[in-house]
C-alpha cells in the first residue's frame, strides 16, 4: 500500500543522503521524496512517498527512526492528512488550442504563469491523482515539458509533527 511518511531531521550536510541511502540499501521503494528547511533553521522536513507491505512499512519507520540525524517520524497515512504536489507544465498553445488549454487550466484550478506566442506554462497544485488527471486531459503531443515537486504532506487538525 502507498504510504506518506513525514519526518523532521537535523538540517545537516549528508542527512538527506542517509535517508536516500537507507532506502536504496534496503531495497525500499521511493515514489517521491521532498525536503526543505523548516521555520526552525536547524531542522529539515521531508516527505517520502513509498509503498510496501505492512511489515516493510513498519521496518521503514523503524529504520528511519534509527538514523541518528532523524528527530521524529510520522506515517501520515495512519490518520487524516492532506497531501499536495506542485507541477509546472509547458504546453504548445497555438490557434484555437490556446482557448482550450486556458479552459482546461481553469477547470483544474491551475494558473497560467508564463505565456509566449506558441506556449503556455501552467502551475497546478493538488494531489498526485489530480495532477495525473490533468496531464491525461491534455493531448499528449501538446505537452512540451513537465516538472513536479513530489508530494508534501501534513496531518489534519491536531496531528502535528514537531520537536
Amino acid at each position: 500500500m502507498r504510504h506518506i511518511i513525514s519526518l523532521l531531521m537535523e538540517n545537516e550536510a549528508g542527512a538527506l543522503s542517509r535517508v536516500a541511502g537507507l532506502f536504496s540499501a534496503r531495497g525500499y521503494n521511493i515514489e517521491s521524496l521532498t525536503v526543505a528547511p523548516t521555520e526552525d533553521a536547524t531542522l529539515s522536513r521531508m516527505t517520502i512517498v513509498t509503498s510496501g507491505s505492512d511489515a516493510v512499512i513498519e521496518q521503514i519507520n523503524k529504520q528511519l527512526n534509527k538514523l541518528v540525524d532523524v528527530v521524529s517520524v510520522m506515517d501520515l497515512s495512519d490518520g487524516e492528512h492532506l497531501e499536495r504536489e506542485l507541477m509546472l507544465v509547458k504546453v504548445k498553445a497555438v490557434g484555437e488550442m490556446r482557448e482550450e488549454i486556458k479552459r482546461m487550466t481553469d477547470i483544474f484550478r491551475g494558473r497560467i504563469i508564463d505565456v509566449s506566442n506558441s506556449t503556455y506554462t501552467i502551475e497546478l497544485t493538488g494531489s498526485r491523482a489530480k495532477l495525473d488527471n490533468f496531464l491525461q486531459a491534455i493531448e499528449r503531443d501538446l505537452i512540451l515539458e513537465t516538472v513536479r515537486t513530489g508530494t508534501s504532506g501534513i496531518g489534519r487538525g491536531d496531528r502535528i509533527l514537531k520537536v
Binding site: A13, G14, S17, R18, G21, A25, V68, D69
Partner: peptide
C-alpha cells in the same frame, strides 16, 4: 570517507 562508510557505521561525522 563519510560517503563510503555511511552504510556500515552507526553514524559518522566530517
Amino acid at each position: 570517507a563519510v560517503g563510503i562508510t555511511r552504510p556500515c557505521v552507526k553514524h559518522n561525522f566530517l
